[in-house]
């Protein structure tokens, strides 16, 4: 474990806690894309298939349970909670899941590290995580009003993967193992997708004005 990875995990944990707190306290999911949350639940499910078979460390298992639990409870809140669901904007959150899931699945079947079920699922989760934020970014551009918590949520989500890239660079130079090129590419694509959001987020922070994404 290196400082970049720990910082990345804490940033990731903080992002889901910020979102869960927002939904739980103000009982609203305005501006949050249910599609993205469902895609993240799928990412964690396919990424953590080995949670009960391969024990790596207590930290690893606890964090996996937190990510699985938080992503599914966020989906539950938006779908089932009698108050929260009213603030879900289903007319604007229309991004089709399968536009992302199918290509990632096909890509994972053809481009993977080893053609085994677990390995294909793991690769699928890497590809899907890279694009899972798209419905959320589309929703932000459509609704145009981004409340602070949602802005912070997306920012933290992007920052976590950028920290992971630093972690892979560090591991590449300091450890005997290697970071597979699929991991590199999926991670870089994911971080680049946030790049324009980061730009507008930073501009709004610098000029101390409301965060607006261009239509």
């Amino acid at each position: 474990m290196n400082i970049f990875r720990l910082a990345g995990d804490m940033t990731h944990l903080f992002s889901v806690l910020v979102l869960l707190l927002k939904i739980h306290t103000i009982k609203s999911c305005a501006g949050i894309s249910l599609k993205t949350q469902e895609l993240y639940a799928l990412v964690f499910t396919t990424r953590y298939l080995d949670i009960f078979t391969d024990f790596i460390s207590l930290y690893n298992t606890v964090m996996k349970l937190i990510f699985l639990g938080s992503s599914f409870s966020i989906v539950w809140y938006i779908r089932r909670h009698k108050i929260v669901r009213r603030s879900y904007d289903k007319d604007q959150d229309t991004f089709r899941h399968y536009f992302l899931v199918i290509p990632c699945l096909v890509l994972a079947v053809f481009i993977n590290h080893k053609f085994t079920f677990k390995e294909v699922m793991w690769t699928f989760s890497l590809y899907l995580e890279a694009v899972a934020i798209l419905p959320q970014l589309v929703l932000l551009q459509r609704t145009r009003n981004i409340d602070n918590l949602t802005g912070q949520y997306v920012f933290l989500l992007g920052a976590y993967r950028a920290l992971y890239i630093l972690n892979w660079i560090y591991r590449h130079f300091t450890e005997p193992h290697y970071v597979h090129w699929i991991t590199w590419i999926a991670g870089v694509v994911q971080t680049l997708l946030y790049a324009d959001f980061f730009y507008y987020y930073f501009q709004s922070w610098k000029n101390n004005e409301k965060l607006q994404l261009p239509a």
């Binding site: 990875r5 995990d9 990731h12 990424r47 790596i56 460390s57 690893n60 964090m63 996996k64 990510f67 590290h113 992971y164 972690n167 892979w168 591991r171 450890e175 005997p176 193992h177 290697y178 970071v179 597979h180 991991t183």
Partner: peptide
């Protein structure tokens, strides 16, 4: 550089 490093990651 034999095995994948990132399997112990989240």
């Amino acid at each position: 550089k034999d095995e994948e490093a990132t399997k112990d990651e989240l």
